[in-house]
């Protein structure tokens, strides 16, 4: 800010100089991240489009193939029969579950309760642990002789299932894990929004005789609309890009029986196992279309809201 000792007449011009100097400094500050963003993100996206029309190997383009990568992809049983359904099923269950759990946790820790800070930290804790470590631990817990089956045995359910290695239970198991690890982050987003809702609204509602439940549905839930949109968008994008849990639990094969093959795992396989980069780029473009479509649908659902 301009110094207070300057005479009033100089102040205006000084302020103008200061503004433009500030603008220049500001531009200089964003120049580097902006350049990185443009080359590593925007350029990369368009370049992927370009690559997807080529037969592209490790050393670069071999042949222009037009839409052949896309038509091969549509005829690929693993992509159409496993990768896409698995990804959509995962998204359809994990996203609402994450949102519901995240919102419930946020509402709970927003109450004036004893040990509030402790609970906030505890609920958020899974989100800061390395997902690789958590998945490895989870596969131990869900082994035939693991803790999960032992606990089930105590309550009278005999099970020798290898949960993450059985074609029927592998994906649902990983879904449970994903909901647990990420709902802490969703809680945080909801909590920030919850705290911006004015107390007076609740006091007014209480005077009108509204109980807690009514206040929640009539005040809290609708006022959280921007948060819903933001959380849903982040959660859907994350779910569609699911890779690490699958890769660590099932390897690049998406074992068992492609149960853990997601779109991104499929993409990875096309690059690191068969080195078909054109094909992989086509998968990337299809994924982009999925993500954009779902995000646009969400914007419609939640109306035009500014994500905070």
């Amino acid at each position: 800010m301009a110094s207070t000792s300057v005479a009033a007449g100089d102040r205006a011009t000084n302020l103008g100089d200061e503004r433009s100097r500030e603008a220049r400094v500001g531009l200089a500050f964003i120049a580097v991240p902006m350049a990185l963003f443009l080359t590593l993100q925007i350029f990369a996206i368009f370049y992927a489009f370009f690559i997807s029309f080529w037969d592209w190997g490790i050393r670069g383009p071999r042949d222009f193939v037009g839409l052949a990568n896309y038509s091969d992809l549509l005829g690929d049983n693993v992509f159409i029969g496993k990768a896409i359904p698995n990804t959509l099923f995962y998204t359809a269950i994990v996203v609402p579950a994450q949102m519901a759990l995240g919102l419930s946790l946020a509402v709970i820790v927003n109450q004036k309760i004893r040990g509030q800070t402790f609970f906030r930290a505890a609920f958020y804790f899974p989100a800061i642990a390395s997902s690789a470590a958590i998945v490895v631990l989870f596969t131990f817990l869900t082994q035939p002789a693991g803790l999960l089956n032992t606990v089930l045995g105590f309550v009278g359910i005999e099970s020798s299932l290898n949960w993450t290695n059985n074609p029927g239970t592998a994906l649902p198991s990983i879904m449970v894990l994903a909901v647990w690890t990420t709902s802490g982050t969703m809680m945080l987003f909801y909590l920030a929004s919850l705290q911006s809702i004015s107390r007076e609204l609740y006091e007014a509602a209480a005077l009108d005789g509204a109980n807690w439940w009514t206040a929640f549905w009539k005040i809290t839930f609708p006022l959280l609309k921007p948060a819903h949109f933001f959380v849903a968008a982040v959660s859907v994008i994350g779910a569609l890009q699911m890779f690490d849990q699958s890769f660590i639990a099932g390897g690049s094969d998406g074992a068992p029986a492609n149960a853990l093959t997601t779109m991104v795992l499929f993409l990875y396989r096309a690059t690191a196992a068969t080195f078909e980069f054109g094909y992989a780029a086509a998968v990337g473009v299809v994924l982009l279309v999925f993500i954009m479509t779902l995000t646009l649908i969400q914007r419609r659902l939640f109306g035009e809201v500014q994500a905070s």
Binding site: G168, D253, G254, A257, A273
Partner: peptide, 15 residues
């Protein structure tokens, strides 16, 4: 790809 499909189908058949 052949190996991946083999492993996956074998796992399915075992189950």
């Amino acid at each position: 790809d052949v190996q991946g499909a083999f492993n996956n189908e074998l796992t399915r058949v075992l189950a």
